[in-house]
């Protein structure tokens, strides 16, 4: 059985990280043999979904218990869903925490546990409240950029649109589609912004094929995420995946327009 410990350093003399989300390392340790593996915080900027990233890592390593300092209720819920027990509120070194864990392991624990509790209803309610809070946070998290995109599109519609779009999308179907896919691949962010931009492009009579290519490339091609994807999955994989996704954006756009045209359902 493996346990994970969030730590400030790569060995067992390191301190337990004060917060799970900002831990520099996660140590995956077998308490019986004492063998461990130190995993640095990786996979992109540390501020992006650090807690959930840790959950994924723990699930992938078949961890059964996590020892940490502070862990937010939302992330606790994620660990619970993954069947991982959390023992939070710890301090001191990793070695000390592991020793304490080994001592307590045979005795019934009073900490946070993934085992079914008698207060299942309470936990269910807590889970729903947590889901509601996270949804509101995610929703309002995407709103500032969305609102700005809408205001910028409003200005674009009045001040720039025709001249600018005529300069960018010349009417050459092949070039326009290629450009649509390029713009989609370069821009990043919530897909909702791409829908609104694409909707406005269609309103300004930009052809459906480049607009669809733009929509698909926005969500499938990730130039901005390429370094993180390369670090995790290798350059060849990341390069091929993005290249194929780019090509697919163009092909799907053409197919979509063809099928829509054949079925008489013009947007």
């Amino acid at each position: 059985m493996k346990i994970a410990i969030s730590a400030d350093g790569p060995d067992t003399d390191s301190k337990i990280a004060a917060r799970l989300g900002t831990a520099e390392y996660m140590l995956i340790l077998d308490p019986e043999t004492g063998e461990f593996e130190a995993l640095p915080n990786m996979g992109g900027p540390p501020q992006r979904a650090a807690g959930v990233r840790t959950v994924m890592l723990a699930v992938g390593k078949d961890v059964k218990t996590l020892l940490t300092g502070y862990c937010s209720p939302a992330i606790r819920e994620q660990f619970r869903a993954g069947g991982i027990e959390i023992i939070a509120g710890l301090s001191g070194t990793v070695a000390e925490a592991v020793e304490r864990y080994k001592k307590d392991h045979s005795a019934p624990r009073r900490g946070l546990s993934a085992a079914p509790s008698p207060q299942t209803t309470g936990r269910y309610r807590e889970s729903l409240i947590d889901a509601a809070e996270r949804s509101v946070r995610q929703f309002f998290g995407m709103l500032p950029v969305l609102v700005c995109v809408i205001f910028l599109l409003g200005a674009f519609n009045v001040f720039l649109s025709r001249r600018f779009l005529a300069a960018v999308f010349s009417g050459n179907a092949a070039l326009d589609t290629f450009l649509g896919a390029c713009f989609g691949g370069i821009f990043a962010g919530n897909a909702i912004n791409s829908y609104i931009i694409a909707g406005e492009l269609l309103r300004h009579n930009v052809s459906l094929i480049p607009v669809t290519a733009f929509l698909i490339a926005w969500v499938t091609v990730g130039i901005v995420q390429l370094p993180a994807e390369t670090a995790a999955l290798g350059f060849k994989f990341a390069f091929l995946r993005n290249l194929f996704s780019f090509i697919s954006a163009i092909i799907i756009a053409i197919l979509t327009a063809l099928i829509l045209s054949c079925s008489g359902k013009i947007l």
Binding site: G43, A49, M56, L57, V59, G60, Q225, A228
Partner: peptide, 15 residues
């Protein structure tokens, strides 16, 4: 759902 960054460590591990 959520940012793709969250999934990279798991995908790396699975790979």
């Amino acid at each position: 759902a959520g940012p793709v960054y969250a999934w990279y460590p798991l995908l790396k591990d699975l790979k």
